[in-house]
Design a protein around this nucleic acid. Structure first.
Length: 239
DNA sequence: TAGATTTGACCACC
DNA sequence: GGTGGTCAAATCTA
């Protein structure tokens, strides 16, 4: 069962003084860091990723998995994603997006409105009332975990919560959290406290009004994740 | 059989 | 030399 609190996302600190961050920035131009729940991670972010590495990180409890765009070879897409379980809360993951998607394919679920394949965005609806309605619709919106793990081509139901117990809205990734050149530079990141789960600002994300939509995944308390070990899922690094 | 994942090794940076 | 990031061969899966 996925509670509202489970469906949360928060920006992490850029930690400009963090040596790891610095090292990353030396090699990469753009770095967007998110914190998502297991359900959100399973739901995918609208892109097709291919895992190319996994590594133990010093001082971290969980291994870090490295993904790059499936269209890296075919379209030369340089987008890279890093996924790592958080130390303080095993149900949450730090996702770091590096680079921009240059591929036009694999960013959206079929049938999803494509306003601009090169400038995807999150939409954020601050209307809490909408969550209950959408929760009732979750059964029809939930995507099979296996499907998500194989394709990662469905919109990500990233959700906001200012505290673990309170939801203020839900982010829906229409295609990608990065690759919007005109907005990426505005990614203001407020630091996340060690107790995590606090929402920071998402400048590149559009606070949508009526056209925003929510989605809650029913993950049965993420129990299905435990069953994914045998399917070479993306969470194997948590073992 | 093709595509994805795993994993050890290598490279770049500090 | 230590660490993070990437490569590529081996392995797995549909």
């Amino acid at each position: 069962m996925s509670s509202i609190a489970d469906c949360s996302i928060s920006m992490l600190s850029n930690a400009s003084d963090d040596p790891i961050f610095k090292a990353t920035m030396k090699r990469n131009k753009k770095r967007h860091e998110l914190r998502v729940s297991k359900a959100d991670l399973l739901a995918g972010d609208g892109h097709n990723w291919r895992k190319y590495g996994q590594k133990e990180i010093l001082g971290a409890k969980h291994r870090r998995a490295y993904y790059r765009c499936t269209h890296r070879n075919s379209q030369g897409c340089k987008a890279v994603k890093q996924v790592q379980g958080t130390d303080e809360d095993p149900t949450f993951f730090n996702i770091v997006y590096i680079g921009e998607h240059t591929s036009a394919q694999g960013q959206r679920a079929p049938g999803q409105a494509a306003t601009d394949a090169q400038a995807p965005e999150y939409k954020y609806n601050a209307n809490p009332g909408a969550s209950s309605l959408l929760q009732s619709q979750s059964s029809s919106l939930t995507v099979e975990p296996e499907q998500q793990l194989q394709g990662w081509d469905a919109p990500a139901p990233f959700c906001f919560s200012s505290t673990p117990a309170m939801v203020s809205g839900c982010l829906v990734l229409e295609s990608s959290p990065f690759s919007a050149p005109s907005r990426s530079k505005n990614w203001g990141v407020s630091s996340a406290t060690s107790d995590s789960n606090h929402v920071a600002s998402f400048p590149p994300f559009e606070v949508a009004g009526d056209d925003a939509f929510f989605r809650f995944d029913e993950a049965d308390d993420y129990g299905f994740l435990d069953d994914l070990d045998s399917t070479s899922d993306v969470f194997s690094f948590l073992e």
